[in-house]
């Protein structure tokens, strides 16, 4: 569905991503694990053009986008095809839960307000927050905010959901409800790229696990293989520390 070729991102002369190649198939759920500062989040942010990579190519349904020469229309297409779930939720502070979910449908996709709100209410029921439709983010708990954040990503029916450390900013008491929701989204075969430090969660939902270090994909494979008998020494030493 999306092929990434030679993706390179450099911050202040230091490469954060060094020529990443990755093929994402439709319906595939990929978990990215690895130490902090190894480019996991940057990879997600580049796919959504929140960062402009220095080099590389995205291939969508056979059409190629050169990341350095991407036109505004191509950047928008990439953003419509991907939906981002942020570590810090990043809900629109001036909009209610319902409005947060409906905003993209109304403003970007040009849907009528009524149909967008109906869709938002449907999603709110689905994520168990129907009673919070008119609540502003400031009055929601961290867990509730992140569930709305996931709801916002679901609303756009994007082909690929990019989930960036969805529970890292949460108090421990809210982690479970967010992981449960994401598990449900994953079970519906939503194509996903998830950066996470929750290894049990990664094991449960992922079809494929990528281990990243130093801006490269060091090793990848099915979770049974990566978590039990990884080939690479670095993967082993990382997993020994976190498991």
């Amino acid at each position: 569905m999306i092929q990434i070729r030679g993706l390179t991102k450099i911050y202040d002369g230091v490469p954060v991503l060094s020529g990443i190649d990755l093929d994402i198939k439709k319906g595939e759920r990929i978990a990215i694990i690895g130490p902090s500062g190894t480019g996991k989040s940057t990879l997600l942010r580049c796919l959504n053009f929140l960062e402009t990579p220095e080099q590389g190519e995205y291939v969508l349904d056979g059409k190629s986008i050169d990341v350095q020469k991407a036109k505004a229309s191509q950047i928008k297409e990439m953003r419509l095809r991907t939906a981002f779930v942020f570590q810090n939720y990043a809900l629109f502070a001036n909009k209610t839960a319902r409005e947060n979910i409906a905003e993209g449908l109304i403003t970007v996709r040009g849907e009528a307000k009524e149909t967008a709100f109906e869709r938002a209410d449907e999603i709110l029921r689905d994520i168990g927050l129907a009673d919070k439709a008119d609540a502003y983010p400031a009055s929601l708990s961290g867990g509730q905010q992140q569930r709305v954040g996931i709801g916002r990503a679901m609303a756009n029916n994007s082909e690929l959901m990019l989930v960036d450390e969805p529970t890292s900013a949460l108090d421990p008491e809210w982690v479970d409800e967010v992981l449960q929701l994401l598990t449900r989204v994953a079970q519906a075969r939503q194509t996903m790229l998830i950066v996470t430090h929750e290894m049990a969660f990664a094991k449960e939902i992922a079809d494929r696990v990528l281990f990243m270090e130093g801006g490269r994909i060091v090793e990848q494979g099915p979770p049974e293989k990566i978590f039990t008998s990884p080939d690479d020494l670095r993967t082993r030493s990382f997993l020994r520390k976190v498991l």
Binding site: R79, A83, A90, F92, N94, T107, V108
Partner: peptide, 29 residues
Amino acid sequence: DRSQWEAAKSIGMSTGQMMRRILLPQAAR
């Protein structure tokens, strides 16, 4: 907050839409 820009951009808003719908209303307060 910078996260408001990123969230607006990530769902595909143009700069004008982001200003009108997200940033200016928050800046107004």
